[in-house]
Simulated scan of single mutants.
Amino acid sequence: MRTVPAYQNREVDAMTALSSRESLAVLAYGTEVERVAVEIDSCEHNVGKARRFAREQLVCWGLPEDNELTDRVLLVVSELVTNAVLHGRTRPHAETETLEVALALKRDFALGVMVTDNSCGLPIVNNIRPSVCSISGRGLALVKAQSDGWTAAFRYGREGASGKAVWAFFKCPQLASLPESMPQSA
């Protein structure tokens, strides 16, 4: 746990003092959290669809399209969805499989991005640096670098673990003063 200096606004910096799991609990189960989600087919050409969904929702919540936080969130959505498509499929590519992209916003606190898939294999950050010529192996390193925290957890159904959810969190004090809006349905 990181100590917050006394001179900082503790309300705006509340997420900094929380672990990723505690932030997840607030965004997933807390009150006054706006949530929206979309289910899409798990295929590479739907990464753009997930990014458009996230962009439209961020704008609906009052974040400008050409904002540094918007850019970071969209990059993380792209990376998480790409990872779910490439590594989270449990069915042959000829069969349909879906994944879910969800956004959660608690004003004055944080914005969360969640991507679910059907694989029970939890993601691991590769500590080996990919070569300059490599076209893969950077996804979770980018998520870690662009977000203020990330975590993964199993999803459970009636028969036990039924996949996983990967979350990334972003501090968003700039959304504190924007008017509240209702999430749009996808």
Rank of each mutant, 00 (worst) to 15 (best):
L86R: 14
T116S: 11
A145S: 08
E11Q: 12
C133A: 14
A186C: 08
K49H: 00
V26Q: 04
D66Q: 14
S119A: 04
T90G: 10
V125D: 12
T98V: 06
R2D: 02
R10A: 11
A84V: 00
A28G: 11
F109I: 08
E68K: 09
A186M: 00
V59M: 09
G121P: 00
E97Y: 06
A153V: 11
P183F: 10
Q8M: 15
E22A: 12
S119G: 09
F154Q: 12
E180N: 05
M182Y: 04
L74S: 05
L140D: 04
R51V: 05
L86A: 09
S119L: 08
R72W: 00
S19R: 02
R91V: 10
F109T: 00
Y7I: 06
T116E: 01
R155N: 15
W61C: 03
H87P: 00
V101C: 09
E68A: 15
V26F: 01
P5R: 13
Q57H: 14
G137R: 01
L63M: 13
C120V: 07
G149D: 01
V81K: 15
G48D: 14
A110W: 03
N126E: 06
P183R: 07
S20P: 14
R91Y: 07
W150C: 06
H87V: 02
I128E: 10
N46H: 12
E79D: 04
V125L: 15
E44D: 13
A54D: 10
N118Q: 15
V125Y: 09
Q184T: 11
L122D: 02
I40M: 15
E95H: 06
K144T: 03
M182K: 05
E79W: 12
R10I: 03
V115M: 01
N67Y: 12
H93A: 15
N127M: 13
C172V: 00
S181H: 04
Y7Q: 12
R89E: 08
A102Y: 02
V85M: 08
R158A: 07
M114Q: 09
Q146S: 12
A141R: 15
G88K: 01
L58Y: 00
R89A: 12
R21F: 10
A28F: 09
H45T: 06
M114G: 03
T98H: 14
N9T: 04
L75P: 01
W150N: 03
F169Q: 03
E11S: 07
L105M: 07
T3M: 13
N9F: 12
C133P: 00
S42W: 02
T70K: 03
A54L: 13
E180W: 07
H93V: 13
M15G: 14
G30I: 02
A6N: 12
V26C: 08
V81F: 08
N127C: 13
F169H: 15
A165I: 01
